[in-house]
């Protein structure tokens, strides 16, 4: 993927408010999207799509903080709620209504776990959001780069099973005129990449193999040109898996946002 490494002017919500603008949507970047080298490219891809279609968006910038998802799932409810309440304070302070994020973990937490603590927002995962933009005629996607290419999609647990979103990412792949390939374990029975529940931050327990190796080998059996993901944690796990099998020159691991961006050569 050819990435132009130019600096992007990204508006923060604070600046927008100061300029008397009210953006259509808040882009919640998430910790992976902010700090992880690979996931930053997903963040940039999504922002470039927004800018391409002239969508008025903003980010929280330095005011953004971890949603608390990894803490909650590792059992630290105190830390989760500390994060949640202070994030809700910021979001409600700006009267945020709509949020989009490229991370299913942030998506799930913001959508499902903030409301009973006083944070009520309309939250979109970027795959659904992009789908909506296409449906509304605001974003055009044509085959281009991925025409006829075989793309296998790996369901993120917190998008699929966690929130019942299976079709949006698949519809986007189909729109690229690519051949959508399904693993045996997909949709509701998709196998986890191995990162959730705090596993991303620790060594796995003793076992026969790592979960991402099991999953990547299943994906590679489909002989895909691309393994498509929709979660920055899955991105890390599947990329590591592909490297483990020495297939990184043949098989690319790309987020749906990157597919859309590069297909359109934006």
């Amino acid at each position: 993927m050819q990435e132009k490494n130019d600096s992007i002017k990204v508006p923060t919500l604070a600046e927008c408010i100061a300029n008397g603008e009210s953006p259509e949507i808040l882009f919640w970047v998430g910790c992976m999207g902010s700090f992880d080298e690979r996931a930053r490219k997903i963040t940039r891809a999504l922002v470039k799509i927004f800018q391409h279609i002239g969508l008025k968006y903003a980010v929280l910038g330095l005011e953004e903080s971890c949603t608390g998802d990894p803490a909650k799932r590792a059992g630290n409810e105190f830390l989760f709620q500390m994060q949640a309440l202070s994030n809700i304070d910021v979001l409600n302070g700006y009267e945020v209504k709509k949020i989009v994020t490229a991370c299913p973990h942030c998506f799930n937490t913001l959508k499902n776990e903030y409301s009973s603590l006083g944070g009520n927002y309309e939250v979109f995962h970027h795959t659904t959001f992009l789908q909506n933009l296409i449906d509304a005629g605001r974003l055009k996607v044509e085959g281009g780069t991925y025409q006829g290419k075989k793309i296998v999609f790996h369901d993120p647990c917190y998008l699929g099973r966690g929130n019942g979103i299976y079709e949006a990412p698949r519809d986007l792949i189909v729109k690229l005129d690519a051949e959508l390939s399904e693993m045996k374990r997909s949709r509701a029975h998709g196998l986890c990449c191995g990162a959730g529940g705090g596993q991303m931050f620790k060594e796995p327990e003793k076992g026969e193999k790592d979960i991402n190796i099991e999953r990547t080998s299943e994906a590679l059996q489909q002989k895909p040109d691309v393994i498509a993901v929709a979660c920055p944690f899955c991105m890390t796990m599947m990329s590591d898996g592909v490297k483990n099998f020495n297939k990184e020159s043949e098989v690319k691991v790309l987020d749906i946002a990157e597919l859309i961006l590069t297909a359109n050569d934006l």
Partner: peptide, 19 residues
């Protein structure tokens, strides 16, 4: 404010040149 030891002041580095 993040699960790694990165300073929170680096949150917007992704938007800068050369990432």
């Amino acid at each position: 404010g993040a699960p790694w030891k990165f300073p929170s002041s680096d949150r917007m580095v992704w938007s800068e040149t050369g990432v």
